[in-house]
Amino acid sequence: MTGTLCLKAVGKDFTRGWEQVRALEDIDLEVARGSFVCVVGASGSGKSTLLSLIAGLSRPTTGEVLLDGVPVAGPGPDRGMVFQTGAVYPWRTVERNVAFGLELLPLSRGERAARVDHYLAATGLTGLRHALPRQLSGGQRQRVAIARALACEPEVLLLDEPFGALDVQTKEDMQLFIRRLWHECGTTVIMVTHDVEEAVFLGQRVITLASNPGRVAADVTVPLPGERDLTVKRDAAFLGVRAEIEDLVRLYHHQA
C-alpha cells in the first residue's frame, strides 16, 4: 500500500551562532495510509521542523524519513505542503495557482483544465477562479493553497498551522471543509496546530511534542467516531481528550 509514512530515530540539529541547537531528537513515528494525524506542542517544540523534514525541504541530522519504505531524498509532489501564510503565488489568479503543479507535467490542456475545475469546485473556489490572491480573504487564500497541493494528488498532505490566522467562525468552516476533503480524497493528512481543540476535532491521532529538544511526548488516539460535526466539540469524551492533551502540552512546555 502506498502512502505509509515512517520516521525512524529522526533528529535534527541547527547551528545558531556558535552553538548547536537540537530541534528534534529521536522521533519514531508511523503514520498509516489515509489517516489524519495532528501534531501539537508548544511554540519552538519543532513542529514546523518535523513537517519540513517529511516534506524533504530539509534533511534529518540523524535517522531517516521513509515513504512506502523509500527514504525521502528531497521535496516532491507526493508530499504536498500548505504553509501557515498560504504562500500562494500573488501574480497568478486562483485557477493558475491551482494549475501550477499540473503545468509541470505532460498533460493535455483539456485534462489540466478538467482537473483544475474539479479541485476548484471541491474547495468552493469556482466563482473566484479569475481573482488574484490579494483580492481574497485569508480563508479563501488557504483554500487556494490546499487545492493547489491536492491537485498534485499527494500521498501525504502536510499542513502547518493552516488556520492559525483565521477568526473562529472561518476556522470552524475550514475544519469541516478539510474533514470533508480528507474523506473525499483519502489522502494521509498530517496537520500541525497549536489549537488543541482543533487537533482533537480533526485528528484520529494527536501527537504531542515536548520542547528542548523536540520529542514525541504522547501519542493519543482520539476515541471519537469518524463522522464528526461541530456538536462533537460539546461531547464529554471530546472535552476529556481535549483537557488531557492540553495538560500534556502544558506539562512538556514547562519542562523546557
Binding site: 516534506a55 528531497g74 505542503m81 504553509f83 501564510t85 503565488y89 509541470l104 493547489r148 498534485c152
Partner: peptide, 18 residues
C-alpha cells in the same frame, strides 16, 4: 522573494530551473 514561495514550489514538483 519569500522563502515559503520557493519551498512550496518544490513541494509542488518544480525543479530548480522551473
Amino acid at each position: 522573494i519569500p522563502g515559503a514561495l520557493v519551498d512550496v514550489s518544490y513541494t509542488l514538483g518544480a525543479r530548480r530551473g522551473e
